[in-house]
Amino acid sequence: MGILADLFYPFRRPAQPPARPATGFFTDTTLCIGCKACEVACKQWNQLPSDGFNFTGDSYDNTQALSGTTWRHVVFVEQFPQPQKTESGFAPEALDIEALLAEPPAGRWLMMSDVCKHCGIAPCEIACPTGALIVNEFSNIYVQNDICNGCGYCVAACPFGVIARSPLDGHAHKCTLCYDRQRDDMPPACAKACPTGSIQFGPIDELRVRAHARLEELDARGVSGAYLYGDSPSASYSALNAFFLLIDKPDRYGLPNDPERPQLHLRGDYLRAAFGTLAALAVIAASLMSHVF
């Protein structure tokens, strides 16, 4: 009975909950102080295991990347002048305190709390052959852990390198946008824990208005180069339900400059495969029908 139940369980289709207003994250990187409270809150609420007590030597970033067991990752980007190397080591004058304290500053530190982008048209959800990845009632991309069989196709499809297969259970995992908390009208744990308001949660339309107001505010304060990443669709990619305010190129933060939906050329790829098949079939048929022993 148990085996039969396991066999047929995934084919059951319970009624879908009614749609709710689309929600998402707006991450203002200019407010991030790199405290990693979001990483900790995410681990704690979702009961995710530790990734080990590692020292990478890469700034303050010992997490390194999003993974099946890390759904928030604070990226640290150091942009300071590199000390000149001389025969006796690094030149001390390049670390002159006066130069470091000068206005405008000679360098800066970029920090960004990275997370699943909950894409408007999500390549992982399109690619998933089991239907484990779904768009839930909040328009968030959610992995049904009781359905996923760990085929890994979503990992190959994600242009942001977000979703990953966990070595612990062999299933794919990523940020759920705290689906369980949202259902109880609570904000996601990371947004709740963020002390500076860098991670903002809410209805996506409201977040977009807030983000544009913030851009105007930064512009009025003389902060140049600030822009929104993923708030609107591009020619090759949908809008993101978790979008960012950045002040440098996307790839400086570990984001693709021009993300492209992998299924963009799918119809053409199918047609080219059919063309190759027909060409091979024509060679075989012509050879069989014309060849004389």
Binding site: P10, T130, G131, C148, N149, G150, S166, G170
Partner: peptide, 16 residues
């Protein structure tokens, strides 16, 4: 090759 080979039949839940 699957992360959870016992769930291979989940592939037949949908046709996409």
């Amino acid at each position: 090759d699957l992360g959870d080979p016992a769930r291979f039949h989940h592939m037949l839940r949908t046709f996409k």
